[in-house]
Nucleic acid binder design. Structure first.
Length: 561
RNA sequence: AGGGGCGUCGCCAAGCGGUAAGGCACCGGAUUUUGAUUCCGGCAUUCCCAGGUUCGAUCCCUGGCGCCCCUGCCA
């Protein structure tokens, strides 16, 4: 956590908690992260996780992991497993505090009977459509259900028979008796329980009656002694109901606090849409490196520490916002720059022959693995007469500020020699440049420049003799517009970036990279950060580009073209 | 004349009556065997608008304007 600025980590929620602690309203802080296991976690969840677990850490309290599993038709064990793995990977530990709303089903049911006994709930026989009609509209009050005044005995009998499975799905619900004329629609006798003859991933067929969010979430919070129940803005209108239920049930009453959910440019952040992308095969899966999911980012090579820094940096507020992707990328680069070893890799190879270098010979240069952190050690880099350089590092007719290789020009081969381009060999048929014939200055080995001559261009390279062939996946933004869901009349899927994935099959890497372990990350000098794909096989590695390096040349070149 | 919430630099975000923090982005410039990193410097006389209270208002009051959320037996 950044402690260099006095306001780091401070937000309105911290202020509210400080007040609660100072006034004696609370003595400790207990938060919870309450995912529904119906999809994979994304960076928006990371904001909530960092907030809730971060608060617990800051106040020496605790944070529970609670699965909000009240809708069996959408939830699966697969999601539970993935969510736990993601939270752990992000660096948080819920200890023994792993809970499930479904573990409270019996107690929740008892709460329902208590509400009926207090004449604050009733079984309603209206169907879904009728309930909607009776609810009224935003500007007109609703009407009371004809079943609203059933006796306690009848309600209890009906609810018990509902639980016993006597009635079909949709035929009856349990409703809270609040106020059908409330301007807050959530208070117009909200549904508390619905009949669902569905098998639950944890409770099996024990129940055919399942509580709604409003009758499960706050009650679970209460049972667990949550002091601050932090959720996103769309639940603000539910808070009066949250409060009403705690009062009606006369149970411990946590405080609900709402904050703005995270939005990021060039991506989408709803589980519904992410599920669509997965199901419609527009991406390779939940962990596709282009996805804003934690599993996707992990596969992409984003370090967990970078995501934590990001969540700290963006702050917590109540205004709808959309964070620029560059903020996240900056966090990723910062983390990787400090921690990751450098390597040489050529993505789009162009053959270079050093004509004055002795044939059949070679040498090894000992080079540092990190320019500033010597603790990362050194490695040996082979050099020889035949090399490969990046195609982008040669231009036959370069523009003004280009200072890489061109006919007659001299550049430094990083950590090796100065070379001059003497001749350009082209494919006679296509005119494509296929080889460069260069000469080197033997006095400039290992970076030396005895005569002090100024050579601005430094390019990366790989010796042909022992280059490792590799596949490289280049990832770019998933969508081609900053806010793909802004236009409500269009389909966000039409805005997918067709160039979000580019597969390079002919990259050549330095020998050391052949043995790189899956998941390990490197900076390919001058190109960006790359990590070994988890499904990569040894000897024929597959690298994912995590993020490019900042490229001020690209800006200049872009302006000139 | 439904209710709730929000409006401080291009994007986030501090600020809580005493005269606009910070980050990202952007623009310079220095160092550099990565056009990277690092480092220096620039970047809101102004806080949605209009009135009012006050010696003094981004912070208080009044009235506008704009955006978001709520009419699932989803969460």
């Amino acid at each position: 956590m950044d402690t260099t600025t006095p306001t780091a980590g401070v937000n309105f929620i911290r202020n509210l908690i400080d007040d609660d602690l100072a006034s004696g309203r609370q003595r400790t802080v207990v938060t919870r992260f309450p995912p529904e296991p119906n999809g994979y976690l994304h960076i928006g969840h990371a904001k909530s996780i960092c907030l809730n677990f971060g608060l617990a850490l800051h106040y020496s309290g605790r944070c529970h992991l609670r699965f909000d599993d009240t809708n069996p038709v959408k939830e699966e064990q697969e999601y539970i497993d993935a969510i736990k793995a993601d939270v752990r990977w992000l660096g948080f530990d819920w200890g023994a505090h792993e809970y499930y709303a479904s573990d409270y089903f019996e107690r929740l049911y008892a709460f329902a009977e208590r509400l009926i006994e207090k004449e604050l709930a009733y079984v309603c026989d209206l169907n879904a459509e009728q309930i909607r009609e009776y609810r009224g509209t935003l500007t007109e009050p609703g009407r009371e259900s004809p079943y609203r005044s059933r006796s306690v005995a009848e309600n209890l009998d009906l609810l018990r028979r509902m639980r016993a499975g006597e009635f079909a799905d949709g035929t009856r619900v349990l409703r809270a008796k609040v106020d059908m004329t409330s301007p807050n629609l959530n208070l117009r006798d909200p549904v508390l329980y619905r009949i669902l003859h569905a098998t639950h991933h944890r409770t099996g067929d024990a129940w055919c009656l399942y509580p709604m969010y409003d009758f499960a979430h706050g009650q679970s919070d209460s049972l667990e002694g949550i002091t601050h129940s932090i959720c996103t803005l769309e639940f603000e209108a539910h808070r009066p109901l949250y409060d009403w239920l705690c009062e009606a049930l006369e149970i411990y009453h946590p405080r609900q606090i709402e904050f703005a959910r995270l939005n990021l440019t060039y991506t989408v952040m709803s589980k519904r849409r992410l599920l669509e992308l997965v199901n419609e095969r527009r991406v390779a899966g939940w962990d596709d490196p282009r996805m804003p999911t934690l599993s996707g980012m992990r596969r992409r090579g984003y370090p967990a520490a970078a995501i934590r820094t990001f969540c700290e940096r963006i702050g917590v507020g109540k205004s709808d916002s959309i964070i620029d992707m560059s903020v996240l990328e900056d966090c990723v680069r910062e983390e990787l720059d400090h921690t990751v070893p450098r390597a040489m890799g050529v993505l789009r190879p162009l053959k270079v022959v050093i004509t004055n270098y002795p044939e059949g010979e070679g040498e090894q240069f000992t080079v540092p693995n990190h320019p500033k952190d010597s603790s990362l050690g050194t490695r040996s880099l082979p050099f020889g007469r035949e090399l490969y350089i990046e195609r982008d590092d040669f231009m036959e007719d370069p523009p003004g500020k280009y200072f890489r290789l061109a006919p007659g020009r001299e550049v430094r081969l990083r950590y090796a020699y100065l070379i001059r381009c003497d001749e350009v060999v082209k494919d006679p048929a296509s005119g494509e440049v296929v080889e460069l014939r260069c000469s080197y200055d033997p006095a400039t080995g290992g970076g030396a420049t005895p005569d002090g001559r100024k050579v601005k261009g430094i390019i990366h390279w790989v010796a042909a003799a022992n280059a490792v062939p590799a596949a490289v996946h280049l990832y770019d933004r998933l969508f081609s517009v900053a806010n793909p869901t802004a236009d409500k009349t269009g389909d966000y899927r039409d805005l997918l970036n067709p160039a979000s994935l580019e597969i390079l099959g002919e990259a050549l890497l330095e020998p050391m990279l052949a043995a790189a372990a899956p998941g390990s990350c490197f900076q390919f000098e001058r190109l960006g950060y790359f990590c070994v794909d988890p499904e990569s096989v040894s000897g024929q590695p597959c690298f994912n580009r995590t993020v490019t390096l900042r490229d001020s040349w690209a800006k200049v070149a872009g302006v000139e073209s």
